[in-house]
């Protein structure tokens, strides 16, 4: 019984971090119709900025927002300088659908090399700002520590803020309108190009937060070849696809589902099957509901 509860808690914590990554994939997909594999590199770069702040000011609490802002700025810069040029020059023919994907993979490699150049390829350490030792009930240790509680609370807060922006503000309306129908939005006077950049910036911030939280939640080690970030990318992407790639709520649900399934497989089946399970889950969802769990039916295409 206790093991069941702990597995559940581990799944929720992991899932909430994946959901930030999934959200950042969805935000980019909605604004530019590009699957951004460079998101893992962006998240990593943001986390290194965070590491620099911790190194200088010795505060994770300053580093977290700084990493998010840095992530937003770098992502906006990539969209402005790189993606716009790319989409302009390869908007026709067979290359149109594949060029952005290859480009983001290239960017991922480039960002990792840049990180290696400036910070070296050795591990740097980001210490968890809060205790990662679980609360105890009687003699039992719960898989919920102050740090994990903070992670879940932070993700819930960020998702609520994003939901508020999207549903209740004019910026959110512009973001949604531009995602659904760029041409109509343009004719209505919305500066769709600018809105796209904002979409990338929000995605960059979410990615930065995911990187900072993931690193502090794990063993704190950070390197350009970090497996943690590769997993974060893979799981974030899978979660986004499970959720339909177009829906923020879908991304969160997909991520929590994935986190829970992986946690249960890890505890009750075995660690070697975790990665396979993630991809099997992806395939099953794609076969049964190709549009993702939250698919918006025919309306999307109009």
């Amino acid at each position: 019984m206790f093991q069941l509860l702990n597995t559940f808690l581990i799944g929720i914590t992991a899932g909430s971090i994946y959901s930030l990554m999934a959200i950042s994939m969805v935000l980019v997909w909605r604004s530019t119709r590009v699957v951004n594999f460079a998101q893992a590199g962006l998240a990593m770069l943001s986390t290194y900025f965070g590491y620099e702040i911790i190194h200088r000011f010795d505060s994770y609490w300053i580093a977290l927002p700084v990493a998010m802002i840095a992530g937003a700025l770098v992502a906006a810069g990539i969209e402005l300088i790189f993606m716009r040029l790319l989409l302009k020059h390869s908007s026709q023919g067979a290359i149109a659908s594949i060029a952005p994907i290859i480009a983001t993979l290239g960017l991922l490699g480039l960002i990792k090399s840049i990180i290696g150049y400036f910070w070296g390829n050795q591990d740097v350490i980001i210490e968890s700002p809060l205790s990662n030792v679980g609360f105890t009930i009687g003699t039992q240790t719960l898989a919920l520590s102050p740090m994990k509680t903070f992670i879940i609370a932070a993700v819930v807060f960020m998702v609520l803020v994003l939901t508020f922006i999207f549903q209740r503000t004019n910026l959110g309306l512009a973001l949604r309108a531009s995602a659904y129908a760029p041409e109509i939005s343009r004719l209505a006077g919305i500066k769709v190009d600018l809105v796209r950049t904002v979409g990338w910036a929000l995605a960059g911030a979410a990615g930065g937060a995911a990187g900072m939280l993931q690193t502090a939640n794990g063993n704190g080690a950070l390197s350009p070849d970090s497996l943690e970030f590769s997993l974060l990318l893979a799981f974030g992407f899978i979660a986004a696809v499970i959720g339909g790639l177009d829906s923020l709520i879908g991304a969160v649900i997909g991520a929590l589902l994935l986190g829970l399934v992986l946690a249960f497989v890890l505890t009750y089946v075995g660690g070697s099957l975790v990665f396979i399970t993630a991809f099997v889950l992806l395939l099953v969802v794609l076969l049964i509901r190709p549009g993702g769990l939250i698919s918006q039916k025919a309306g999307r295409r109009a």
């Binding site: 004019n170 949604r176 309108a177 659904y180 129908a181 004719l187 209505a188 918006q296």
Partner: peptide
């Protein structure tokens, strides 16, 4: 019928005045 089906009627109207 150039409207955005996923948005509400009110939102469809509002986007015309966002600028």
């Amino acid at each position: 019928k150039s409207v955005i089906p996923e948005l509400t009627v009110k939102e469809n109207l509002e986007i015309g005045a966002l600028w």
